[in-house]
Design a protein around this nucleic acid. Structure first.
Length: 193
DNA sequence: CCCTGATTCGC
DNA sequence: GCGAATCAGG
């Protein structure tokens, strides 16, 4: 592969967009992130000062600021720390998942979107509880595309961490958490009348 | 361990 | 010019 005009453009665009070298390399294909970085430097745009505070417009994970949380302190698992990583699917929320039952609810906030105590298979829940014990308990900064992003605890307290176990290919969570996060859309209660 | 970008240097 | 190897850092 060579740096055709087109490829260079994609590179420029993505780089300016804050994409990481590896992501760009993946997108382009046929090159490694080293190649991308090398090219970036040769093009003289190493410093993403092109237009943005570099730091503010592209960082990886820096989303859930535990601080000011106007809404609920511990809503349903709304992890996906990726501020805007286009590669990751931040879309799919968790249709009804009530992971760890928070024992504490910070302020007198009305109960968070307690997504209906869905009929999540008791087994799945049990599995989650079991998993929480051996979770890696990683921090926000330690999340990657292959670490379970299931949040545990209250973001407003020190007792907050992410599962961190190996994710299930493609999914943002580990097997156990995928189990409670993505319900088949009905746990047999589709009695439509 | 995973990942990031930066640099070097033989090709 | 290119990019693997390596470095420095989170």
């Amino acid at each position: 592969m060579s740096w055709t005009d087109e490829r260079v453009e994609t590179l420029k665009k993505m780089w300016a967009d804050g994409q990481s070298a590896s992501q760009i390399a993946k997108e382009l294909g046929g090159v490694t992130r080293n190649a991308v970085i090398g090219k970036v430097h040769r093009l003289g745009l190493s410093n993403r000062a092109g237009a943005e505070p570099a730091e503010a417009a592209a960082p990886k994970a820096e989303a859930p600021k535990p601080k000011a949380e106007p809404k609920a302190a511990k809503p349903a698992p709304a992890p996906a720390p990726e501020t805007e990583a286009p590669v990751l699917e931040t879309k799919s929320a968790n249709p009804g998942a009530t992971p760890p039952r928070p024992k504490i609810i910070p302020a007198g906030q009305p109960l968070p979107p307690q997504p209906s105590a869905n009929e999540i298979s008791p087994e799945a829940l049990a599995k989650v509880n079991a998993v929480e014990k051996k979770a890696k308990k990683i921090t926000l900064m330690e999340l990657t595309e292959r670490t379970c992003k299931w949040p545990v605890g209250d973001p407003a307290t020190e007792d907050f961490w992410f599962c961190g176990l190996p994710v299930q290919q493609g999914k943002p969570y580990c097997e156990a958490h995928v189990g409670v996060a993505f319900q088949p859309m009905s746990s047999r209660r589709d009695r439509r009348r």
